[in-house]
Write a protein that binds this DNA or RNA. Structure first.
Length: 596
DNA sequence: GGGGGCCGGGG
DNA sequence: GTGTACGGCCCCC
């Protein structure tokens, strides 16, 4: 038996025979530092919970079906302990196959936790976190024992027992950015006819390169004979650089699909994965996501839309916002002219293209740490986190916490519940005072951005403490709307926000005490991530798609918020401030100086 | 006023 | 993949 320690980069599962095998993709720590590893776990089974009408009949009925086994469990469901059946299935794909049959059984009232992807279930149940270190016992496999074709220098490891999470430093990650240019003389590029003319690459460890079919005296340009060869070189460089993160700008929507289409046309295999697999795509609603196994493809465009508030999100605009300097730009419809020119203008095009890749690396270095910390806190793969809304992150964080607390996760709304929620009269939002016109001096701002989390904690606003009938002794009663929340016990969401805020205070203290600048910086990002999470937590009550949706909770929080902001403004006026403008989580006031 | 359709980024 | 998901704006009735 051997032990391996690695940074968990990604996770998925494959099927061997009729069994699911979980694969943990990582980068080894300690001996063999930096080498890629794929850890196989054959011993995790999918399951769902069943709410029985009559538990014994129900257990019999379910056992008749093609299931692995049935267990009786007791779990807390929205504040009450109840009996459930845990139905363990043979394969993850049996879940969608069998859940409707199970739900329709006469002895079954409902099914729960039936739509949690297998790899996410694994991360939650095993208590391990992507971008953190994990330790496993087991043995190395040779190529013949492995069912997928893999590069020979990747360690394939058969796990035995349980993975162990380790307290770990923030890992040093290798970033490789890429950007393609296309010769499109007419309209937007069409992969059917418009060739890729260059691929630019930039890493956070100094690589700066442009691969192209054109010759150049510029030393960062590598010339290849054909476009097919260019794509092959791209794959070779990705493999030899072996980055943890592959990043682009709008690459989910443009670069990745374009590379795929051209490669298909030219007969080039894009074996970019550490397991030797080809570039894949995942449907994600309105956008597909480019997937490279064992590395994490991140599209910065999506992240910038989330983190920055701008009128536009072009690479140039984002770069200017973050670094305060202009980046040169060639309009897309002129690129072919620069290419065809072959001289000075082509040289400009090479520089521009490399600049784009370098800018992506710089933006990534600045903006990725926050998402990486959120990954370590929420505990879902970085690939997913980078494509989630904050609301979804909150939900997955709560799912993990529900498991830790022994709580049953609420179901997602059915489509009819969803449209009911959407059509309910919108709740009153934050307090808004229209601005007083004019130019004001001596402005002070009062910021209550953390107001909602504090209200949720102090008023114990949670779906499991919400009650219809109650008096002021045992309940907090919201102003205006009158919703009631038990003072005791502490609700699920208030308890979690309380822990987040406590943890944040601990990290801030540690940060202030730290002498190490790198550590200080990491701790600072950690506390920012916790703040973000705490401040987004309120959203789960008011967003119609969420499992913990409870409009009365959202309604009560904003009611207490308005109450609080108005009282504070009143207080401020007593001290000589005059409110000019207020909106939800803060207000601006001028200080009226005494004339005497 | 609310439902449907389109767009964002990329070249 | 234990899927199929955004939010803002414009137009139109």
């Amino acid at each position: 038996m051997e032990t391996k320690r690695f940074v968990l980069l990604d996770i998925d599962y494959i099927t061997e025979g009729d069994k699911a095998v979980v694969r943990l993709f990582g980068k080894i720590k300690g001996d063999e530092e930096g080498k890629s590893i794929i850890v196989l776990d054959k011993n995790f089974k999918p399951y769902i919970y069943v709410v029985p009408r009559d538990i014994e009949t129900c257990a019999d009925d379910v056992s008749e079906l093609e299931v692995e086994s049935v267990e009786w469990v007791r779990k807390n469901d929205n504040g009450q302990d109840k009996d459930f059946l845990k139905v363990i299935l043979n394969h993850p794909q049996d879940v969608p196959k069998l859940r409707d049959i199970i739900r329709d059984l006469e002895s079954v009232e409902d099914i729960r936790e039936h739509d949690i992807p297998f790899y996410r279930r694994y991360l939650v149940d095993k208590g391990i976190f992507p971008m953190s270190e994990v330790e496993v016992d087991g043995k190395c496999l040779t190529g013949n024992d492995v069912k997928f074709s893999c590069e020979e220098d990747v360690c394939i490891f058969q796990m035995e027992g349980e993975p162990r999470p380790l307290e770990s430093e923030f890992p040093e990650l290798k970033i490789l950015s890429f950007d393609i240019e296309v010769r499109n003389p007419k309209g937007m590029p069409q992969a059917e006819v418009d060739e890729i003319i260059m691929i630019s690459l930039s890493s956070n460890q100094g690589l700066e390169k442009v691969i192209s079919t054109a010759k150049s005296s510029l030393d960062f340009v590598e010339t290849v004979k054909t476009e097919a060869r260019m794509l092959e070189r791209f794959v070779e460089i990705v493999k030899s650089e072996n980055p943890d993160l592959l990043i682009g700008y709008n690459s989910d929507n443009f670069d990745m699909p374009y590379i795929r289409d051209r490669a298909a046309k030219l007969g080039v295999k894009l074996k970019l994965g550490t397991d030797g697999s080809q570039l894949k795509f995942m449907r994600r609603g309105f956008a597909n996501a480019g997937l490279v196994k064992g590395r994490i493809h991140v599209d910065l465009y999506l992240l910038m839309r989330r983190y920055l508030t701008l009128d536009r999100y072009t690479l140039e605009r984002v770069y200017r916002e973050l670094f305060g300097e202009e980046k040169r730009d060639i309009p897309g419809d002129e690129i072919f002219e620069y290419w065809d020119d072959g001289g000075k203008k082509l040289e400009m095009l090479f520089n521009y293209s490399l600049d784009d890749a370098v800018a992506v690396t710089k933006i990534g270095e600045k903006m990725l740490p926050l998402s990486l910390e959120l990954t370590r806190i929420v505990g879902q793969p970085f690939f997913d986190i980078a494509r989630m809304t904050t609301g979804q992150m909150v939900e997955w964080y709560l799912i993990r916490k529900a498991y830790e607390y022994g709580d049953m996760v609420p179901n997602k709304p059915s489509s009819s519940q969803y449209s009911q929620r959407r059509h309910k009269k919108r709740i009153a939002g934050g307090y808004v005072k229209d601005p007083v016109k004019g130019l004001h001096e001596n402005i002070v701002s009062f910021d209550f951005r953390s107001l909602y989390p504090s209200i949720i904690i102090s008023k114990n606003v949670s779906p499991d403490t919400f009650v219809e009938e109650c008096d002021e002794d045992t309940c907090h009663i919201a102003p205006e709307v009158g919703h009631k929340f038990l003072k005791e016990p502490v609700g699920f969401v208030p308890s979690i926000i309380g822990n987040i805020l406590k943890e944040r205070v601990r990290i801030k203290t540690q940060m202030k005490a730290s002498e190490n600048p790198r550590e200080k910086q990491i701790l600072d990002v950690q506390q920012q991530a916790l703040k973000r999470l705490a401040n987004s937590m309120y959203g789960v009550y008011g967003y119609s798609r969420f499992r913990w949706y409870r409009i009365e909770c959202a309604d009560a929080v904003t009611a207490w918020g308005r109450d609080f902001i108005k009282k504070t403004m009143k207080k401020a006026e007593d001290y000589g401030f005059k409110a000019i403008y207020a909106d939800t989580d803060g207000f601006y006031a001028t200080y009226i100086e005494d004339d005497d």
